[in-house]
């Protein structure tokens, strides 16, 4: 490759990609003018967001607009765009943390679900204890929920604390939605005291396969040695399902097991190897596990 040609081509591409034109001060004035057309203000927000680093006072404007419940939703969303991106780095925005928290809590009261959800997400990411409390309350009492149960569990995962585990255990034990239970199981992997509950889920043949699979991953993370015991028990069980057997065998193989295969499980693996058709996921998982053990 001719580097001169390569450089010329890149210079041409760069030359054609000029930064957006416009005066930042004018754009800030347009954005701040609550009486102006919404479309114009959103367009102004685009320029303000992309060039906010040039003037620290832009962040004060963005925070003000976000927290103004009387302002247009589209403009508040545009302000939130800038705030979210500049969270990755801006020290000027960091200095407005208290004002931003207030603005986000006002945005949580908005009618627009997108604005509400994004505000909740950002507060949860920032470990806001009030939002964490509301998420827990919503999981315990559906009428108090500020977002969906699955999302509530996810958001609690940004900052797990001892009292969060209690509600997560309740979700695993009693929630009707499988995805929400899976999310809670994942998070409980960080809690040693949840090992017994997780093991119960993994062993329960009446559970959905996906829930057991997530439970197996959680058990392997929280108690790797006990996971091996449970996994080989599942493999040895004539009455358990192929899908979960293949899943736990794959997990054992990938992570590496510390014990030799118990006799009953070894016998089952031989049977699988001899009787199952080539290409069946369980046979493939068994083959890979035996190979790994042999090595």
């Amino acid at each position: 490759m001719d580097l001169d040609d390569y450089r010329r081509q890149l210079e041409a591409d760069v030359g054609a990609a000029a930064p957006p034109a416009g005066d930042l001060a004018d754009a800030m004035a347009t954005l701040a003018d609550r009486s102006g057309p919404v479309a114009d203000r959103v367009e102004a927000a685009r320029l303000v967001n992309m060039r906010a680093h040039e003037r620290p006072d832009t962040f004060g404007l963005l925070v003000d607009i976000l927290g103004d419940g009387g302002d247009a939703t589209d403009v508040r969303l545009a302000a939130l765009d800038g705030i979210e991106v500049h969270q990755f780095g801006s020290s000027a925005l960091k200095e407005q943390r208290a004002e931003l928290t207030v603005a986000l809590k006002r945005a949580m009261e908005a009618d627009d679900p997108d604005l509400r959800e994004r505000a909740i997400d950002m507060l949860a990411r920032g470990r806001d204890v009030d939002v964490q409390r509301q998420l827990i309350d919503g999981l315990r009492d559906r009428t108090a929920a500020i977002t969906t149960p699955q999302r509530s569990v996810e958001l609690l995962g940004y900052d797990l604390k001892a009292d969060h585990y209690d509600v997560l255990k309740d979700v695993v034990a009693g929630h009707e939605d499988a995805e929400t239970r899976r999310e809670a199981l994942r998070l409980l992997a960080a809690d040693a005291e949840s090992e017994a509950l997780i093991e119960t889920v993994v062993r329960d043949k009446d559970e959905e396969a996906a829930v057991r699979d997530t439970g197996a991953a959680a058990l392997q993370a929280v108690a790797p040695e006990q996971f091996e015991v449970v996994a080989y028990d599942i493999v040895a069980d004539d009455n358990d399902y192929d899908e979960i057997k293949a899943s736990v065998l794959t997990k054992l193989t990938q992570q590496g097991s510390t014990t030799s295969i118990p006799a009953e499980a070894a016998a089952q693996l031989d049977t699988i190897q001899n009787e199952r058709a080539d290409g069946e996921p369980l046979k493939e998982a068994a083959r890979r596990h035996i190979e790994q053990q042999d090595n």
Partner: peptide, 22 residues
């Protein structure tokens, strides 16, 4: 959903950080 789909054979299927799998 909250997690991307990973093939069972993908080495990242056993990914764990902060004690939490996935």
């Amino acid at each position: 959903t909250s997690q991307p789909e990973l093939a069972p054979s993908n080495p990242l299927a056993t990914w764990v950080t902060d004690g939490i799998p996935g």
